[in-house]
Design a protein around this nucleic acid. Structure first.
Lengths: 204, 204
DNA sequence: CTGAAGTGTTAACATTGTTTACATTCTCCC
DNA sequence: GGGAGAATGTAAACAATGTTAACACTTCAG
């Protein structure tokens, strides 16, 4: 097991807060939510437990920061995958490719970090997890806006389309993360659902 | 706060196991997963903590039984709503109405028991949450089979359709449970997504 | 009636999140 | 530079938790 090292001089760690978040993520990834603990995080980064209370109000707050970071990371993965999509002179095809890249990224993340994804959207003290400006949500809306501009999606679906797309992809991702679909089904499952989303958004 | 009473004679409770599950559900519903505790459950049903270990191996096992019951209940709600759907001489319309009733039930459950729903599908020690015979899954498959029989859904979608439908509705339900869509959006959101699912399944 | 199986209690343990008091280090102003 | 004060760490203690071991009461079959 990897434990983060303190730098040269002791006593002051240097960047305890981010170290704690990293360590906490590691614990969740390997042992699930119940593996997260203030003392365990402290031990993993070579510090005593109360030190963490200089940076977090409580264990709950540490968890909240971890989940916020996970959602951010998810958005960044989507962004990166979008960038990787090859341009195409058929604009419609290009936008569609990017859209699917986003969905694939979302599902990939859930598949590769199931325990993190699983807890990324749980509710803490009535704070919504879809704040305006959250990256993933923003990217999705931009994509669909392009669909509308290009006449691929009817204007009448402007408000519903992002929600339809998100909930569908989110549903797949959740089921994949929970291993509710078997490994052998996943490949097929993913593309089938992405086809379905596409069907629902596009004009007929 | 309601605490369950023991019946007349003391010492032996009578049905501690189910009482514990009920009490545990109550704790989760009002305080989230972290509110569930062996000692708290014990207190709520008027018994000492170790007594529960006659009926559950651990807190984790109590949680597993609670989630299993929640999934069962979800299936039963769907079943009941299907029964309530009025018959119609247009068989296609009838089947479609039942399908939407199922989806509505699923989402309603998530809306009305958000904290229970939220934890109903989390993974415990690699056991899949979609075992063959789970009621909800079975009902969904029967419904889509009817679609195929009536020529509403192409046979080619026999394998994908249930997964597409499930993941979509599950996605909505998750987002609703997490309050990731605001209360004012929910109504619109639900029907928009159900329209989308329908679009994706039906022949064009 | 009797003993064994079932079900509950009491007492104890290790571990947890958290607080209080104190120690060390860093920073910045004179 | 040196010292005050903020920032950040440690040590010791607390109440609460999950769990176990040893014992007590109840039920019930033979």
């Amino acid at each position: 097991m990897l434990t983060l090292q303190r730098k040269g001089s002791d006593y002051h760690h240097g960047d305890l807060k981010t170290a704690a978040i990293v360590a906490g993520r590691g614990l969740i990834e390997s042992g699930g939510l119940s593996a997260l603990g203030i003392r365990r995080v402290a031990e993993k980064i070579g510090v005593t437990a109360p030190a963490l209370y200089r940076h977090f109000l409580s264990l709950e707050e540490l968890l909240v920061e971890i989940t916020a970071q996970v959602r951010q990371e998810l958005g960044e993965l989507m962004q990166e995958r979008i960038r990787r999509v090859r341009k195409h002179r058929d604009k419609k095809k290009y936008e569609l490719d990017k859209f699917r890249a986003m969905g694939d990224a979302y599902i990939d993340y859930a598949d590769q970090h199931p325990r993190l994804f699983e807890i990324a959207f749980i509710q803490h003290q009535d704070k919504s997890t879809r704040e305006f400006g959250e990256l993933a949500w923003q990217l999705l809306n931009e994509s669909i806006e392009k669909f509308i501009e290009l006449g691929m999606t009817p204007k009448s679906k402007r408000d519903s389309a992002p929600l339809v797309a998100w909930s569908t992809v989110h549903g797949v991702a959740t089921l994949v993360a929970n291993r509710a679909v078997s490994a052998s089904e996943i490949q097929f499952f993913r593309s089938a659902v992405m086809d379905g989303v596409q069907d629902a958004l596009l004009k007929r």
